[in-house]
Design a protein around this nucleic acid. Structure first.
Length: 880
RNA sequence: GCCCGGAUGGUGAAAUGGCAGACACAGCGGACUUAAAAUCCGCAGACCCUUAUCAGGUCGUGCCGGUUCGAGUCCGGCUCCGGGCACCA
């Protein structure tokens, strides 16, 4: 910086000037040249381990402020844990598969691989510029074959275990692109790329992973994860949606005229089939106790029985068609909840197995086809939705539950159950609802028309994507079939043939289904079993697969013969602290929990959960709104670093708000932190010679002893603040993580040092004390502002690598105040403040308070009723 | 509709049930400077009393109530803002 030379004549002056633009690149170069610097010790290390992990980013090419904040938190923690003597694993990687690479390819004609890898390069550079303490030796890039081959390996293992299977499911389909769209690519019901094209719902054969096998474990595990935020656990609980209830069979009664008409007409085989099984409708209910109040059966429009009946009943067919169309429209408008309840009578009836009553069977748009059995018994008296429906269509509404035996006139619908009792329910009348649920379910079970059941909202995980830039699914379809495999049947690729490589030079176009399907060299292959012609699976895996287990790979990133070595994973897992955005609370974090359980059952690891503790940081906000390109309020980290340096940028991200809260980005605040660092730099540089001299004079214990003994009051006061600061920061790191107040505490210390400058210069503070304080100050700064801390550590003659120095110990004795200011209240109102010595007894404190001038005046003529003395806090005099 | 958060000066925020507003930002005043920038020092919740000072008083943590010697903090009932889920039988 040439202006420095102009502004500062003296060389000594210049060295006191904080210049991050000079310091930071210099230290970065030194750190980059030392790949061992942040390398964890081997798993055989005897040290206690600490696995500190931040969520891996998608390599968009640009770090944003959310990343900066996330990594600043993780980095501070990792550095602190190192200094506390832990063996720390602090890795970073890239969630490198995904659609944006394909879009970029379309737009700029750049191959996805090239685009992705150059983005990674750019972001890695930004991270290095930030001074983040990652061990780049364990870097994981999910789009490279040495990673994704293990996705394929896991897929084969899951196939062997019956955890991966083909399933027909509904997908968003763009007829113009001829491809499946992710939910987030559907904008207002239209294809995000073709605004005039409506997205269709299509049934498609897809690969799915049987996550539902672990539903109970995923749910119950949440209760044993106190290190995860309640918010996340609640969200997962709702997502899993376990509900205990009963399946009940209602026999379908054939009505004479209807069936006669049906018999006259030719019946398609599907209908015949449906009719054969049409003996009963199974409903799922959590309130089997209310079954005496059932007044109809409601089927989802997609229910197979409804489909069968449509052919016979044109009126029903058009009603159902209308419902489906409206549902579709609502889905497009993203307003499924706001749709009005509608239904149509099927003309059929069913028998209530408990009462023998005949109930009309309806089709209703509020019944979900994919939850429970797609059929319910409608109890309008005790269910709000059924009530609304029954009112609209004039169906009877019966009361069968009352809050207690005497209260029978409460408005319907009444949905209470805990203390409630049954009425008008035959032999069950008078029973408590909850007890009746159990007994009636058992009764149904014993009589063969019901079963206690647990249902889940969670569905199996559909992992097929009709995309290019993802992990190829390692399956082939044997064209002619062979022994035990029908023509076109599934044959897994043998492990030895992995990886199934993604072809690199392909033309990406907008249309035509799976891009890999149009690459004959890829799609056409030989059946690994019979050698005959075969076609590869041309779908790729959901990118959530990549992020479900990447953190295990970090423990053994170079392993070429296994996803990782179990001994290494078992040493490092579970992750001690996982840090990331709350937006991943459900999908990523459920999928990774699932994957962990699968790996455990495969015998690869011992832990059942991936992370001991999870921290979700708040958003970065600017002008009251989340930063986004469309709002034009994005602040670029590069800009900030250029202007104020990485230290100031990181430190501001920690100082402006506690990490769990949203953070309002104010550039003036960054400038303020930068000014603070200048003050620290100037002071530490100025006293560096004192520190160095004291270090070379001092000899071990002697030095330590003289640091604390025979202090001047000025020195004692500084030491007191120092040790209070150490204590505060140390506690905060292991609990609240309120780094904003930690940094404030360091500021207080530095302000005091500034104020004590004259005292220090005039010899009022011993050199050994000055040394102790500045050494500790630099150590305290290390987790938050590593560049300037490293620089100052060197200037003050510190030995070794700063980030491996032991964290300073707080000395409670030195931190203790010897005189306390105690507020005095009268009837809870502050009246005065008195000074007492820290050792004073309550009685003494009271006496001092009572003799205070202001207190005496106020007390005149009053009667003292009660005195409250809280040691070190206050005195409250209660008077009348 | 349901479930979570949150609400404190002009702004970001701080405060194991114990002096509300630490620490900063912006602001104002001063020092340094020919001047500015930078830096340093000081002031700073609102209102009232006072010619002014010194000092003093009243009110004040979204609203209403409660518990307590004492409530930003705990309890009950609301309002508004943010996030998640949403006909889950």
């Amino acid at each position: 910086m040439p202006e420095n030379e102009n502004n500062f004549a003296g060389k000594g002056e210049e060295s006191n000037r904080y210049n991050p633009a000079e310091i930071e690149p210099r230290w970065q170069a030194r750190w980059d040249a030392d790949p061992e610097l942040y390398r964890a010790e081997d798993h055989t290390s005897g040290k206690p381990k600490f696995y500190c992990l931040e969520m891996l980013p998608y390599p968009s090419g640009q770090l944003h402020m959310g990343h900066v904040r996330n990594y600043a938190i993780g980095d501070a923690l990792a550095r602190f844990m190192w200094m506390r003597g832990y063996n720390v694993l602090h890795p970073m990687g890239w969630d490198a598969f995904g659609l944006p690479a394909e879009n970029a390819a379309l737009k700029n004609n750049t191959p996805p691989r090239q685009w992705t890898l150059s983005n990674i390069e750019a972001m890695r550079k930004q991270m290095r510029r930030m001074g983040l303490s990652y061990d780049w030796g364990t870097e994981v890039t999910t789009c490279l074959p040495d990673y994704y081959r293990w996705n394929q390996w896991f897929f084969l293992k899951m196939y062997e275990q019956g955890l991966a299977y083909r399933k027909s499911s509904k997908v968003n389909w763009c007829p113009k692109c001829c491809t499946v769209l992710a939910n987030e690519q559907v904008v207002g019901g239209h294809c995000w790329r073709h605004e005039d094209t409506l997205v269709e719902q299509r049934e498609l054969e897809q690969w799915a992973l049987r996550i539902t096998k672990y539903s109970d474990e995923l749910l119950d595990g949440l209760d044993m994860m106190p290190g995860w935020p309640d918010k996340v656990r609640t969200m997962q609980r709702n997502w899993l949606g376990r509900s205990q209830g009963t399946m009940v069979d209602f026999a379908v009664a054939e009505s004479g005229s209807e069936s006669a008409r049906q018999l006259d007409e030719p019946t398609p085989p599907a209908l015949e089939q449906a009719r054969a099984g049409a003996g009963k409708i199974t409903v799922f209910t959590t309130r089997v106790d209310t079954i005496f109040g059932a007044t109809s059966i409601q089927l989802a429009p997609e229910h197979p029985l409804v489909k069968a009946w449509l052919a016979d009943d044109a009126q029903l067919a058009s009603a159902v068609e209308k419902m489906l169309a409206e549902q579709q429209a609502a889905r497009e408008a993203d307003n499924l909840g706001g749709i009005e309840k509608e239904g149509a009578f099927t003309g059929k009836h069913a028998l209530n197995p408990f009462t023998g009553e005949t109930l009309p069977i309806w089709v209703a748009n509020y019944i979900l086809a994919d939850y429970g059995t797609g059929a319910i018994m409608s109890v309008p008296g005790h269910d709000e939705r059924d009530f609304e429906f029954a009112q609209k269509y004039g169906l009877p509404i019966k009361r069968v539950v009352a809050p207690n035996v005497d209260t029978n006139d409460l408005a319907l619908p009444y949905t209470g159950e805990d203390e409630a009792v049954l009425v008008d329910s035959g032999e069950w009348t008078g029973e408590n609802c909850l007890e009746a649920q159990d007994k009636m379910a058992s009764f149904a079970e014993a009589n063969g028309f019901g079963k206690k059941t647990t249902t889940y909202r969670l569905k199996d995980w559909g992992v097929s994507r009709q995309r290019y830039w993802g992990t190829p699914i390692p399956m082939v379809y044997c064209t002619n079939g062979h022994d035990g495999v029908p023509a076109g049947g599934i044959v897994p690729v043998p492990e030895s043939a992995l990886p199934v490589l993604l072809p690199e030079h392909i033309e990406i176009t907008q249309e035509g289904g799976s891009p890999l399907g149009k690459v004959p060299e890829f799609a056409n292959t030989a059946c690994p079993v019979c050698g005959g012609p075969a076609r590869r699976e041309t779908d790729t895996m959901d990118t959530f697969v990549d992020s479900s287990w990447y953190f295990y790979r970090y423990t053994d990133a170079k392993n070429a013969s296994a996803p990782f070595d179990s001994a290494k994973a078992n040493y490092w897992f579970p992750i001690d602290q996982y840090i990331g955005g709350v937006e991943h609370a459900i999908l990523h974090l459920i999928y990774s929990r699932f994957w962990t359980k699968v790996m455990r059952d495969l015998g690869l690891i011992e832990n059942s959960e991936p992370a001991e503790r999870l921290f979700t940081q708040g958003m970065v906000i600017k002008d009251g709104a989340k930063m986004s390109k469309s709002k034009g309020n994005v602040v670029s980290p590069d800009d900030m670093i250029e202007r104020y340096g990485a230290d100031a940028t990181r430190m501001y991200a920690l100082f402006a708000a506690p990490p769990d809260r949203d953070l309002e980005w104010q550039e003036d605040g960054v400038a303020g932190v930068s000014r603070f660092l200048s003050r620290v730099y100037r002071l530490a540089s100025k006293y560096a010679p004192v520190v160095r001299a004291s270090r070379s004079n001092a000899h071990g214990d002697e030095a330590a002893a003289s640091a604390t003994a025979g202090q001047t009051p000025a020195g004692q006061a500084l030491l007191r603040t120092l040790h209070q600061t150490i204590a505060k920061i140390t506690t905060d790191f292991s609990g609240r993580w309120h780094f904003n107040t930690c940094i404030a505490a360091i500021m207080i210390l530095v302000n005091e040092l500034s104020a004590a400058e004259t005292a220090m210069d005039s010899g009022d503070v011993a050199g050994i004390t000055i040394a102790e304080i500045f050494e500790a100050l630099v150590l305290l700064l290390a987790p938050f502002a590593p560049f300037v801390a490293a620089e100052l550590w060197e200037q003050i003659g510190g030995e070794g690598v700063l980030f491996r120095q032991p964290w300073p110990e707080a000395d409670a004795e030195l931190a203790r105040e010897n005189e306390l200011e105690v507020p005095v209240q009268i009837n809870g109102k502050l009246v005065s403040v008195v000074k007492v010595s820290a050792e004073s007894e309550d009685e003494t404190i009271k006496d001092v308070a009572m003799s205070d001038e202001k207190v005496r005046t106020r007390l005149a003529g009053k009667t003292l009723v009660k005195t409250i003395v809280v040691k070190g806090k206050l005195v409250n005099l209660v008077v009348k």
